[in-house]
Design a protein around this nucleic acid. Sequence first.
DNA 1: ACAAAAGTGTTACACGTACACCCATGA
DNA 2: TCATGGGTGTACGTGTAACACTTTTGT
Lengths: 243, 243
Amino acid sequence: MSLNPDPNPVDTLDHPHIQEYFAFGISVDCVVFGYDGIDVKVLLIERGTDPFKGYQAIPGDLVHPTEDAVTATERVLKDLTGLTNVYLEQLQTFAGVDRHPLGRVATIAYFSLLKIGDYNPKPSSWATDAQWTPIQDLGEMAFDHKEIFDAALERLQMRVRQKPIGFELLPAEFTLADLQHLYETLLNTQFDKANFRKKILAMDLLLAMDKTQKAVRHRPARLYQFDAARYEALSKRGFHFEL
Amino acid sequence: MSLNPDPNPVDTLDHPHIQEYFAFGISVDCVVFGYDGIDVKVLLIERGTDPFKGYQAIPGDLVHPTEDAVTATERVLKDLTGLTNVYLEQLQTFAGVDRHPLGRVATIAYFSLLKIGDYNPKPSSWATDAQWTPIQDLGEMAFDHKEIFDAALERLQMRVRQKPIGFELLPAEFTLADLQHLYETLLNTQFDKANFRKKILAMDLLLAMDKTQKAVRHRPARLYQFDAARYEALSKRGFHFEL
DNA sequence: ACAAAAGTGTTACACGTACACCCATGA
DNA sequence: TCATGGGTGTACGTGTAACACTTTTGT
């Protein structure tokens, strides 16, 4: 930030009404995505109090006075899901004047991806109101949360094409068909099976396990893991993931 | 934003220390890019007061209590450059605890692109300290502004490949060689002349003028304009610009 | 006539797409 | 042995990269 050095020297705090400039609240909101093998889902809270009582809301909280924004988001995620090491990316900040009826609050929106099976909310906290909601059938959302969600989904669809973050939504071991179905669901497209496999395997990012599916009534598929270390190494040599 | 409905019902403003949560300052900073035909440049302020007196800083200001963040950024740009209709994109928010020595200030960073020839700063304002600086030779920067600049440049390099925003940096009429040189400078690469032309022209986004360069000591090149309306139309039909 | 940069055509090759086919398992 | 999805090979067309060539101006 750079404050006007001359006509409005607010950076030396001798502006006449300087205290009026330090009356903002800052919140973080986090759009949490998951995938259960069928649908892409978001974790939403049903609001229990007015304003917007009964509406769906993106989980979030006010940032504490001496707390980092990322720290605040991780705190919200921990309380909500019990998880600490999840993919987290800053999305966009919404700073409209009238976005919150109770005061001037700017919100820094994040989105995160997690393996839905790891989700294990704290009992008896506000997080118990959280619901995994398929992204096709969202209800009415509080505040400007629909706008935030739309931005998050668009960003996810873009990001998933250029970074190998789809794996964050899958269990540690998965089949290529799982992966393909995830991408098809996320991007609303269809891929040719053979070509999808060739493309993914050619990237050399997957570790083939010596295991296969069990108890399926067809030929069992091989299981794979995402090789994060390999991706790091390839990235340094100029490799770029692309769907 | 969604405030804890249960243990910390801050959204009803009955949290014990609620006023401590509304003590943030919010600023906007705008990384302004230009191109003079040779170098890509940024518009930077030399700070006249401590802290960081004499350091280079990204122009910005505190957001007024009843002002939108975008409005604040447009105000800064207007004061700085005299321009009102410039390309503007939100970049990222920097909300670290100790980023400003004089208080808790979160900054929403933007970047903008403008035709350097249109730049016409207000005389006798803080903007007269602004300098176009080639991006290769930046000095030491105030606060966390180097970090902000790096993020802006990275975003610009990414964005310019997937949206036709390079034209924002060129005069209304330009040659294909101008365009190619801009991209080469911006992305630190070289393109094959023939292939670059074919690719750009095949997109059908340029309007060929019936004019050519004057007073060059070689064959004069044809001038083109970017056809924004055509781009809109093509976008709706699923067209995606790609370098 | 020459230098310098505009502007074009040709070819080789890599890559994506489409599609046909075989394989392994449970019922 | 049949249904079901796993898994693979090939052939074709499109797009990209490399490069040689022609054109038009000023000096």
